[in-house]
Design a protein around this nucleic acid. Structure first.
Length: 490
RNA sequence: AGCGGUAUCGUCUAGUGGUCAGGACGGGAGAUUCUCAUUCUCCAAACAGGGGUUCAAUUCCCCUUACCGCCGCCA
């Protein structure tokens, strides 16, 4: 049995998309499960849309997700180079083989001529297939066209290939996730394999590379199903072994359209910037189309790999639901140690002067504010009141709490008692408990009592543990804020 | 238009020719707590429609519908 070799072949015309990341993940999982190799190949045949920035982004994102490749542009391997633009001398050779065998032919049609054909087909409401106008050009005719300065593209001769390897025009293959798939090759149309500018088209480059790189299984999005038939024919024409295919359903946005910017983040790097943990992202995306056998959803990539069965992947599309991702991200944040969280949160705290806090207090601040975090970035709006002198009181805290008589009364007695308190968290806890109890006897609910202090000190009606907040802020700042919230009486 | 694919709670899914159709997110209710949150408990929520096959269909087959994809000298 040959070793399993799978690949992810992104095109660097944008940052690594979360859909591509899922395809990469499934390939990676399949490789891990079968002790195979996971290969990265960069498909940059379209120089116009390629940029180094995107290539770097793809590398970084894949690494951040933990999808480490065994062979690739940066680390090499036995079947390199792994960047298509560095393989441009390879493709014409194989195109020539196809030409020699009659599986391909030169096409001198101009874009304008092709456009006219398409228009005509559209007018007649007929599906467009290339007319094969150039299939039987004589050498003289070709020479003449060349003399006019026309450069030919090379087209694949579908009928010839189909007849050479199959009895009928029906072509089928057994997809690992979708099962038996067929098509009538008469409907396919001779497609271009080499552009007139000498570069290979996607369908051709993919096959040549997959063949040369000895890929055994090709797992990709279902938008490639119709390409698969063309590719199988090329594999056959080239005399290569045909790999196994597996086509995954697509990921859709909540409104069932393609996942795009207006739905939120789409690139892995954007998710990371927004405060998502890559472990959570991997876990979430694995659950789109695949379910763990024990029903336990929070799982590491290694656990998922051990449990992964490609034939059990759902073949339907799935919707990318941010709610569940957020919940899952929160679960992963909970699992982080406070020490680690302290570091990972720093990028989201740059608007504050952390030097105002001792390390001990910074730690404590994180401990008491980490609970509700769904995204790392949530910390930004959770902690403003720990910094600076004084505090901004939001409207709700002012009108619903501080403007009440009860709150004013609470704050006045707080100011009478608190200056005598020893300002440690432990002691404050005790004192405040007593403080609440006293007010409770007067008919004021504990939470109302605390609301007054919270509103005065944090400017908000809700938030982290009040005792700890006071301890972190220190006696002077706490009391000064409490005092500031008391209205001057005439 | 043509071709291909898909169809279980709102969403991700489990599942079987006979099940109270299970779980998770989200939603609702309650408990805990100084608030929010967390955590825990409970509740509502689905087999797209129509034909078959069968003693029995959510499950197998066909049709319809809906949705997705593909029809480039893009990848």
């Amino acid at each position: 049995m040959t070793d399993v070799r799978v690949r992810i072949a992104p095109s660097p015309s944008g940052n690594l998309h979360v859909g591509t990341a899922r395809t990469a993940l499934f390939n990676y999982l399949f490789a891990k499960k079968n002790n195979g190799k996971f290969i990265l190949r960069i498909e940059d045949t379209d120089a116009e849309r390629t940029s180094q920035e995107y290539i770097d982004n793809i590398f970084d994102s894949l690494k951040a997700l933990g999808l480490n490749w065994d062979e690739g542009p940066d680390i090499g391997g036995d079947y390199g180079p792994y960047t298509q633009s560095e393989r441009f001398d390879i493709y014409p050779k194989y195109a020539q083989i196809l030409l020699d065998k009659g599986f391909a032919y030169e096409c001198f049609c101009t874009p304008e001529e092709l456009e006219a054909e398409k228009q005509e087909a559209a007018n007649n409401k007929k599906p467009y297939v290339y007319t094969k106008k150039c299939l039987n050009l004589t050498e003289e005719e070709k020479a003449k066209l060349r003399a006019q300065g026309r450069k030919p593209a090379i087209r694949f001769n579908i009928e010839k290939a189909q007849k050479a390897f199959h009895d009928t025009s029906m072509l089928s293959f057994n997809d690992m996730v979708k099962g038996e798939l067929h098509v009538d090759t008469n409907l396919l149309g001779d497609f271009v394999i080499m552009k007139s500018n000498g570069s290979p088209t996607y369908n051709f480059a993919v096959v040549v590379d997959d063949m040369l790189m000895k890929m055994t299984h090709i797992i990709r999005g279902e938008d490639h199903i119709s390409n698969t038939f063309k590719q199988i024919l090329i594999f056959e024409a080239l005399g290569a072994e045909i790999p196994q295919f597996g086509h995954l359903g697509m990921i859709l946005a909540p409104d069932r359209s393609k996942l795009s910017k207006r739905h939120g983040a789409t690139a892995v790097s954007e998710f990371v910037e927004h405060g998502y943990l890559t472990d959570a992202l991997v876990n979430f995306v694995a659950l789109l189309g695949w379910a763990p056998s024990d029903g336990e959803e929070i799982k590491s990539i290694d656990e998922i790999a051990a449990d992964f069965r490609i034939h059990e992947i759902s073949s339907s599309n799935s919707i990318f639901e941010y709610d569940k991702l957020n919940w899952m991200n929160g679960q992963y944040i909970k699992k982080l140690s406070t020490e680690e969280l302290k570091e990972r949160l720093k990028p989201y705290l740059t608007k504050y002067d952390l030097s105002e806090l001792t390390d001990e207090n910074y730690t404590r601040m994180i401990e008491i504010t980490r609970e509700p975090l769904k995204l790392l970035s949530d910390i930004t709006d959770a902690v403003p009141y720990f910094f600076g002198k004084g505090v901004h009181i939001d409207e709700e805290a002012q009108t619903k709490v501080l403007d009440t008589e009860t709150a004013q009364d609470v704050l006045k007695s707080f100011m009478e008692q608190a200056p005598d308190w020893e300002w440690t968290e432990e002691n404050l806890h005790e004192k405040l408990e007593k403080f609440r109890a006293d007010y409770k006897e007067k008919g004021v609910k504990p939470k109302v009592t605390m609301w007054a202090i919270r509103a005065a000190v944090t400017g908000r009606t809700c938030g982290a543990d009040m005792t700890a907040i006071l301890a972190i802020l220190g006696k002077e700042e706490s009391l000064s804020r409490a005092k500031a919230a008391i209205k001057a009486t005439v």
